[in-house]
Amino acid sequence: MSDTPPVITGTVYVVGDNIDTDQIIPAQYLNLVPTIPEEYKKLGSYALIGLPEACPPFVEEGQMESAFPIVIAGRNFGCGSSREHAPIALGAAGVKAVVAESYARIFFRNAVATGELYPMESEIRLADVFQTGDAATLDIGAGTLTAGDGTVYSTKPIGDVAPVVSAGGIFAYARETGMIGTDSQ
Protein backbone atom coordinates (compact mmCIF):
# COMPACT_ATOMS: atom_id res chain seq x y z
CA MET A 1 0.00 0.00 0.00
CA SER A 2 1.18 3.53 -0.71
CA ASP A 3 2.18 6.04 1.95
CA THR A 4 -0.67 8.44 1.31
CA PRO A 5 -4.00 6.72 1.80
CA PRO A 6 -5.73 6.67 -1.59
CA VAL A 7 -9.00 8.10 -2.83
CA ILE A 8 -10.86 5.46 -4.82
CA THR A 9 -13.58 6.38 -7.29
CA GLY A 10 -15.67 3.88 -9.18
CA THR A 11 -18.74 1.70 -9.13
CA VAL A 12 -19.53 -0.48 -6.14
CA TYR A 13 -20.50 -4.16 -5.90
CA VAL A 14 -22.88 -4.87 -3.02
CA VAL A 15 -23.23 -8.11 -1.05
CA GLY A 16 -25.04 -9.06 2.17
CA ASP A 17 -24.04 -10.64 5.50
CA ASN A 18 -21.71 -13.57 6.17
CA ILE A 19 -20.03 -13.70 2.78
CA ASP A 20 -17.71 -16.59 3.50
CA THR A 21 -14.40 -17.39 1.85
CA ASP A 22 -15.96 -20.28 -0.10
CA GLN A 23 -18.09 -17.68 -1.87
CA ILE A 24 -15.16 -15.31 -2.36
CA ILE A 25 -12.97 -18.04 -3.86
CA PRO A 26 -14.40 -21.59 -3.97
CA ALA A 27 -12.16 -24.47 -2.93
CA GLN A 28 -11.78 -25.89 -6.42
CA TYR A 29 -9.53 -22.91 -7.28
CA LEU A 30 -7.28 -23.28 -4.25
CA ASN A 31 -4.89 -25.32 -6.34
CA LEU A 32 -3.68 -21.94 -7.62
CA VAL A 33 -0.67 -20.59 -5.72
CA PRO A 34 -0.90 -16.83 -5.10
CA THR A 35 2.86 -16.22 -5.21
CA ILE A 36 3.06 -17.54 -8.80
CA PRO A 37 2.23 -14.44 -10.93
CA GLU A 38 0.00 -16.10 -13.59
CA GLU A 39 -1.90 -17.95 -10.88
CA TYR A 40 -2.33 -14.74 -8.89
CA LYS A 41 -4.04 -13.18 -11.92
CA LYS A 42 -6.16 -16.24 -12.43
CA LEU A 43 -7.38 -16.11 -8.82
CA GLY A 44 -8.62 -12.60 -9.61
CA SER A 45 -10.72 -13.89 -12.49
CA TYR A 46 -12.55 -16.21 -10.07
CA ALA A 47 -13.19 -13.62 -7.34
CA LEU A 48 -16.69 -13.91 -5.83
CA ILE A 49 -17.58 -16.66 -8.29
CA GLY A 50 -19.08 -18.62 -5.40
CA LEU A 51 -21.92 -16.14 -4.83
CA PRO A 52 -25.43 -17.46 -5.44
CA GLU A 53 -26.32 -17.62 -9.13
CA ALA A 54 -28.86 -14.80 -8.84
CA CYS A 55 -26.06 -12.28 -8.15
CA PRO A 56 -24.70 -10.29 -11.09
CA PRO A 57 -21.24 -11.46 -12.19
CA PHE A 58 -18.45 -9.75 -10.31
CA VAL A 59 -15.93 -10.47 -13.06
CA GLU A 60 -17.47 -10.63 -16.55
CA GLU A 61 -16.92 -13.89 -18.38
CA GLY A 62 -13.66 -13.87 -20.31
CA GLN A 63 -12.26 -10.98 -18.22
CA MET A 64 -9.42 -11.23 -15.70
CA GLU A 65 -10.44 -8.23 -13.61
CA SER A 66 -13.61 -6.80 -12.16
CA ALA A 67 -15.20 -3.46 -13.08
CA PHE A 68 -15.87 -2.82 -9.37
CA PRO A 69 -12.99 -1.33 -7.33
CA ILE A 70 -15.09 -1.13 -4.15
CA VAL A 71 -17.10 -3.92 -2.51
CA ILE A 72 -19.78 -2.98 0.01
CA ALA A 73 -20.81 -5.71 2.45
CA GLY A 74 -22.88 -6.43 5.53
CA ARG A 75 -21.70 -8.18 8.68
CA ASN A 76 -18.96 -10.77 9.09
CA PHE A 77 -17.40 -10.41 5.64
CA GLY A 78 -14.82 -13.12 4.88
CA CYS A 79 -15.90 -15.65 7.49
CA GLY A 80 -14.80 -19.25 7.19
CA SER A 81 -11.40 -20.44 6.12
CA SER A 82 -8.03 -18.78 6.62
CA ARG A 83 -7.28 -18.93 2.90
CA GLU A 84 -5.33 -15.85 1.97
CA HIS A 85 -6.53 -16.61 -1.54
CA ALA A 86 -9.67 -14.65 -0.55
CA PRO A 87 -8.28 -11.10 -0.11
CA ILE A 88 -5.78 -11.93 -2.85
CA ALA A 89 -8.50 -12.92 -5.34
CA LEU A 90 -10.28 -9.64 -4.65
CA GLY A 91 -7.05 -7.64 -4.87
CA ALA A 92 -6.02 -9.40 -8.07
CA ALA A 93 -9.45 -8.63 -9.53
CA GLY A 94 -8.73 -4.94 -9.00
CA VAL A 95 -10.62 -4.37 -5.75
CA LYS A 96 -8.98 -1.58 -3.77
CA ALA A 97 -11.19 -1.64 -0.69
CA VAL A 98 -14.04 -3.45 0.98
CA VAL A 99 -16.42 -1.40 3.12
CA ALA A 100 -18.23 -3.82 5.42
CA GLU A 101 -20.26 -3.51 8.57
CA SER A 102 -17.86 -6.00 10.19
CA TYR A 103 -15.25 -8.61 9.27
CA ALA A 104 -14.27 -12.08 10.23
CA ARG A 105 -10.95 -11.84 12.03
CA ILE A 106 -8.71 -13.85 9.70
CA PHE A 107 -9.93 -12.14 6.53
CA PHE A 108 -9.30 -8.72 8.05
CA ARG A 109 -5.88 -9.77 9.21
CA ASN A 110 -4.97 -11.26 5.84
CA ALA A 111 -6.10 -8.13 4.02
CA VAL A 112 -3.82 -6.08 6.25
CA ALA A 113 -0.88 -8.50 6.22
CA THR A 114 -0.86 -8.80 2.43
CA GLY A 115 -1.67 -5.17 1.71
CA GLU A 116 -4.05 -6.43 -1.01
CA LEU A 117 -6.92 -4.14 -0.07
CA TYR A 118 -8.17 -1.77 2.60
CA PRO A 119 -10.68 -3.51 4.88
CA MET A 120 -12.78 -0.53 5.99
CA GLU A 121 -15.66 -0.70 8.46
CA SER A 122 -18.71 1.46 7.90
CA GLU A 123 -20.38 3.32 10.77
CA ILE A 124 -23.80 2.24 9.57
CA ARG A 125 -25.01 -0.62 7.42
CA LEU A 126 -24.43 0.38 3.80
CA ALA A 127 -25.39 -2.89 2.14
CA ASP A 128 -29.01 -1.69 2.06
CA VAL A 129 -28.15 1.87 1.00
CA PHE A 130 -26.06 1.13 -2.08
CA GLN A 131 -26.86 -1.04 -5.07
CA THR A 132 -24.43 -2.80 -7.32
CA GLY A 133 -23.38 -0.40 -10.07
CA ASP A 134 -23.82 2.80 -8.01
CA ALA A 135 -20.99 5.31 -8.26
CA ALA A 136 -19.05 6.19 -5.11
CA THR A 137 -15.84 7.78 -3.91
CA LEU A 138 -13.97 6.32 -0.96
CA ASP A 139 -11.44 8.55 0.75
CA ILE A 140 -9.43 6.22 2.97
CA GLY A 141 -7.55 9.02 4.73
CA ALA A 142 -10.65 11.10 5.45
CA GLY A 143 -12.69 8.00 6.34
CA THR A 144 -15.58 8.86 4.04
CA LEU A 145 -17.58 7.10 1.38
CA THR A 146 -19.46 9.56 -0.83
CA ALA A 147 -22.42 8.34 -2.85
CA GLY A 148 -23.28 9.57 -6.35
CA ASP A 149 -25.93 11.93 -4.94
CA GLY A 150 -23.39 13.57 -2.67
CA THR A 151 -24.43 11.86 0.59
CA VAL A 152 -21.37 11.26 2.75
CA TYR A 153 -21.08 8.13 4.91
CA SER A 154 -18.25 7.75 7.37
CA THR A 155 -16.00 4.77 7.93
CA LYS A 156 -14.45 3.82 11.27
CA PRO A 157 -10.81 4.55 12.00
CA ILE A 158 -8.76 1.52 11.06
CA GLY A 159 -7.49 1.24 14.66
CA ASP A 160 -4.71 -0.93 16.03
CA VAL A 161 -3.59 -2.17 12.67
CA ALA A 162 -3.07 1.35 11.28
CA PRO A 163 0.72 1.22 11.78
CA VAL A 164 0.88 -2.13 9.97
CA VAL A 165 -1.29 -0.85 7.12
CA SER A 166 0.62 2.38 6.73
CA ALA A 167 3.94 0.54 6.79
CA GLY A 168 2.64 -1.62 3.93
CA GLY A 169 2.02 -4.98 5.57
CA ILE A 170 3.49 -7.17 8.29
CA PHE A 171 6.97 -7.51 6.76
CA ALA A 172 7.43 -3.79 6.17
CA TYR A 173 6.15 -3.09 9.68
CA ALA A 174 8.49 -5.62 11.24
CA ARG A 175 11.44 -4.10 9.40
CA GLU A 176 10.43 -0.58 10.39
CA THR A 177 10.20 -1.56 14.03
CA GLY A 178 13.44 -3.54 14.00
CA MET A 179 11.75 -6.89 14.61
CA ILE A 180 13.48 -8.34 11.55
CA GLY A 181 16.59 -7.13 9.72
CA THR A 182 16.34 -4.76 6.77
CA ASP A 183 19.08 -6.41 4.75
CA SER A 184 16.95 -9.27 3.40
CA GLN A 185 15.19 -8.23 0.21
Partner: peptide, 10 residues
Protein backbone atom coordinates in the same frame (compact mmCIF):
# COMPACT_ATOMS: atom_id res chain seq x y z
CA UNK B 1 -5.17 -20.27 15.74
CA UNK B 2 -5.43 -20.03 11.97
CA UNK B 3 -3.41 -17.51 9.97
CA UNK B 4 -2.88 -16.62 6.31
CA UNK B 5 0.10 -17.34 4.08
CA UNK B 6 1.77 -13.98 4.61
CA UNK B 7 1.71 -14.24 8.39
CA UNK B 8 2.80 -17.87 8.08
CA UNK B 9 5.72 -16.86 5.86
CA UNK B 10 6.67 -14.44 8.60
Amino acid sequence: TGIGNTDAGF
